[in-house]
Every structure is written in structure tokens, then in C-alpha cells.
């Protein structure tokens, strides 16, 4: 009994630590401007209002930022999965000379701090005409997303019994046919989980988006939202409303990922 109490107590503390900022964000976005700065603060709005949300869509370009972010993130996620899955499969299954070393280098690339990459990338992209382009930004995100997908999916593929592919090869499938018909259906949980992670990474990314995109019309959410902070004034209600809306896709995604992470880890079953 006491033990359960302690565990639940610790869990509650952790929950408060993690969830309170989210709660505060949501609650602040629903308070009128006058209530946002009140001391002592109110735990629930005295007057519930959607004025910041209305303002967000009428007075700022939040909608466009959101759609820009969505476009970049979907593009980079799709490309990362397409490239990363093939790469991971090759690392897991094909006999490639030096693939162990290559696999380790991929992990190293993933650990490389983005801040070090951004200047060379900017110079490179400028010459290629990829600055101020959603394609360019998506490609830049691949520097992180592809190694991530490869690293996770490689282990995932390795856990799928090789007999299945070999059976498909003998049944008349090509390598890619076996991958498509037999391996990928087993890997769906892993693909969804890594896809969502890759998406979230791009969704939250600030530095690359700030530096590679200077055209206002093409900006994505994280740098776009920074403009709500000005030198003289910060419209906290507006920022909180924008943050709440920007967090929603992530919350939804994690709702999905939970289930797939569990089934993903339980995958395998050699005997079919």
C-alpha cells in the first residue's frame, strides 16, 4: 500500500513537472489579455475567451505558417522514409562491404550538432538555389531524419525473420518485391513510429528554418511564431494560442505513436 502510494506520488510529481507548462500554455491562451498578467495568477480563466485565436487567424499569418510547416514536414518525412527504409534494409540484409562501418557513420551523422551543419548547408544550398524553398528545407531536415530512420528501421528489419523474405524470393518475388510484399507489412508499426518521430523533429525545428528561409511567405511555424515577440512587447496570449495550436498535431501524433510503439516492439514471431 505504502509502496503503491510512493510510486503514484512520484508519477504525479513527474506528471506535474511535464504537464504543467502545457496546462499553463492552454489556459493562458484562453484568458483575456487583462487576465494574463494578473498577480496572483488565476488557475482557470475567470472569463473564457477565444479572442487570441480569432486574432491569430485574422491579424497574423498563422494559417499560412501552419500550412507551410505541414508541407515541409510531410515532404521531409516522406523523403526520409523512402530513402531511410531502403538504406536500412540494405544495411540489415544485403551483403555490402563495410556496411558495419557505414552503419556507425550514420549514427555519428545523427549525433552531429545541427548548428555546425547549418553554415556549410546554407552556402551549399545558396549555390544550388535551394534557399527560400520548402524542398530545400525538407532536404536539410533529411540530414537528421534519414540517419534516424535508418538507425531505427535497421534494427526493425533485422528483427523480421529472414525466412519470410527468402520464401518470397523463391516464390517469385524480386528483392524489392519481397521488401514490398512481405517485409514492409511486418514493419508497419516501426514505419509509423519512426515516421511520426521524423515528422515531429521537423515540426519543432527552429534553426534551419530560420536560416534557410527568409521569404516571409514561405516561413514555417517555429521562426514565424518568434515574430510575435518584439523588442518592446510580447503578446503572450497570442503566443500561447499559437503554441497550443502548434502542439495539437504533436499531441495527436503521440496519441497514435503510443499504440504503435508497443506493437512495434512486440513484433517478430518467427513461426508466423
Amino acid at each position: 500500500m505504502l509502496r503503491a502510494l510512493r510510486i503514484y506520488g512520484a508519477a504525479a510529481l513527474l506528471l506535474i513537472f511535464v504537464a504543467f507548462p502545457l496546462y499553463w500554455m492552454a489556459i493562458t491562451s484562453l484568458k483575456p489579455q487583462t487576465e494574463v498578467f494578473r498577480v496572483p495568477p488565476t488557475w482557470l480563466p475567470e472569463r473564457w475567451t477565444l479572442e487570441h485565436y480569432v486574432e491569430l487567424f485574422l491579424l497574423t499569418d498563422f494559417g499560412r505558417l501552419f500550412l507551410n510547416s505541414l508541407q515541409v514536414c510531410l515532404m521531409s518525412t516522406f523523403m526520409a522514409l523512402a530513402v531511410g527504409i531502403l538504406g536500412a534494409y540494405a544495411l540489415a540484409r544485403l551483403k555490402v562491404r563495410g556496411k558495419e562501418a557505414y552503419g556507425r557513420m550514420v549514427l555519428l551523422a545523427y549525433m552531429f550538432p545541427g548548428a555546425l551543419l547549418i553554415i556549410p548547408l546554407l552556402l551549399l544550398f545558396r549555390q544550388l538555389g535551394l534557399t527560400n524553398s520548402h524542398l530545400g528545407l525538407s532536404l536539410a531536415y533529411l540530414t537528421f531524419a534519414v540517419p534516424f530512420v535508418m538507425w531505427v528501421m535497421r534494427d526493425f528489419f533485422a528483427s523480421i525473420p529472414i525466412d519470410l523474405e527468402e520464401a518470397a524470393l523463391i516464390d517469385g518475388a524480386s528483392r524489392l518485391g519481397a521488401l514490398w510484399d512481405v517485409v514492409l507489412p511486418q514493419a508497419v508499426p516501426g514505419i509509423i513510429a519512426t515516421g511520426i518521430f521524423a515528422f515531429l523533429f521537423a515540426w519543432n525545428e527552429y534553426l534551419f528554418a530560420l536560416i534557410l528561409i527568409s521569404d516571409e511567405a514561405l516561413r514555417t511555424l517555429p521562426p514565424g511564431m518568434m515574430r510575435f515577440v518584439s523588442t518592446t512587447d510580447t503578446n503572450w496570449g497570442l503566443i500561447m494560442a499559437a503554441s497550443t495550436l502548434a502542439t495539437l498535431p504533436m499531441a495527436l501524433a503521440f496519441g497514435l505513436i503510443q499504440r504503435y510503439l508497443v506493437t512495434g516492439l512486440g513484433a517478430g514471431g518467427v513461426k508466423g
Binding site: 525473420p161 525466412d163 519470410l164 527468402e166 520464401a167 518470397a168 512481405v182 514471431g269 518467427v270 508466423g272
Partner: peptide, 10 residues
């Protein structure tokens, strides 16, 4: 080929 694990497509 028949495999030891049967290798039926799950």
C-alpha cells in the same frame, strides 16, 4: 522450398 520455421507470410 519449405522452411523449418514454415515462413508463412503472417
Amino acid at each position: 522450398m519449405v522452411f523449418q520455421s514454415y515462413a508463412l507470410y503472417p
